[in-house]
Write a protein that binds this DNA or RNA. Structure first.
Length: 236
DNA sequence: TCATTAAATTGTT
DNA sequence: AACAATTTAATGA
């Protein structure tokens, strides 16, 4: 089922648990929250599904309730560059939603995910009424800018271990993805797609990061024990 | 609820 | 890219 052809046709209210994943919800007043919840829609995305594509007009501001998405962009040479992954609690598209432009990147589900959408009109209404929401979006834009710059740097890193470490550190950005604890559900295959390396190489890097005490690998996920080490990459 | 089976994920070559 | 070992999810009694 493609999302772009029938966006959010299956509409249902979000459960309280799902609402708790949305970081900006607590910043709203009662009436603002009511309006937001009223408009929020969720949809399932299968692995490989595109949530939005470059060039499409913006209709929704998206957030991840559950699962994992990949944010990528196609450059002039036709190569695909992955900017970052989007874990639960992450929201994106605010830049284009603000200006009501077209999407500048692709968002693809790495695995079966639950994606929430807020219509641009409601997005703008919240901007006009809630200071807390404005602060959230501003923060979001600022952090995203930093992430894009970091993504370019990561892309030029010759050392695979450092690339994996930095990419992981980006995923654990506490500003963009609050609520995300120290554990992240991500398979080594998904991480490989994200970083642009083979799964074997990612596995090797993870093993190395484990011996450095930066992470602990689990079945179907990993736990970060030293985020600072991942960021700085002072190992090796 | 438990035991069995299938599927997914990991670690290694 | 392929393999076996391990973990989780699904199934059905």
């Amino acid at each position: 089922m493609s999302i772009e052809t029938s966006p959010f046709q299956r509409r249902r209210p979000l459960s309280q648990i799902e609402l708790d994943v949305i970081p900006w919800m607590r910043l709203l007043s009662a009436d603002e929250r009511e309006r937001a919840v009223e408009d929020l829609k969720v949809t399932d995305a299968q692995a490989g599904d595109f949530i939005c594509r470059t060039g499409r007009p913006v209709t929704y501001w998206f957030g991840v309730i559950d699962g994992l998405l990949k944010m990528s962009s196609d450059n002039a040479e036709g190569q695909t560059m992955t900017f970052t992954g989007v874990p639960p609690g992450g929201w994106f598209g605010e830049g284009t939603a603000l200006k009501r432009e077209i999407y500048r990147y692709n968002i693809q589900a790495l695995r079966k995910s639950l994606v929430a959408g807020l219509h641009v009109d409601t997005f703008h209404w919240l901007l006009d009424h809630s200071i807390g929401f404005n602060r959230f979006v501003m923060n979001q834009l600022n952090e995203r800018l930093g992430q894009f710059i970091a993504a370019r740097e990561i892309d030029r890193m010759p050392n695979p271990n450092i690339r994996v470490a930095r990419s992981l550190a980006a995923l654990f950005n506490p500003v963009l993805y609050p609520g995300l604890g120290t554990v992240l559900r991500i398979t080594q295959q998904e991480l490989a797609y994200l970083v642009g390396l083979s799964r074997q190489r990612v596995n090797e890097a993870l093993t190395m990061l484990t011996t450095q005490g930066a992470i602990q690998v689990e079945y179907g996920g990993l736990k970060v024990t030293n985020l600072q080490a991942l960021r700085t990459g002072l190992f090796l």
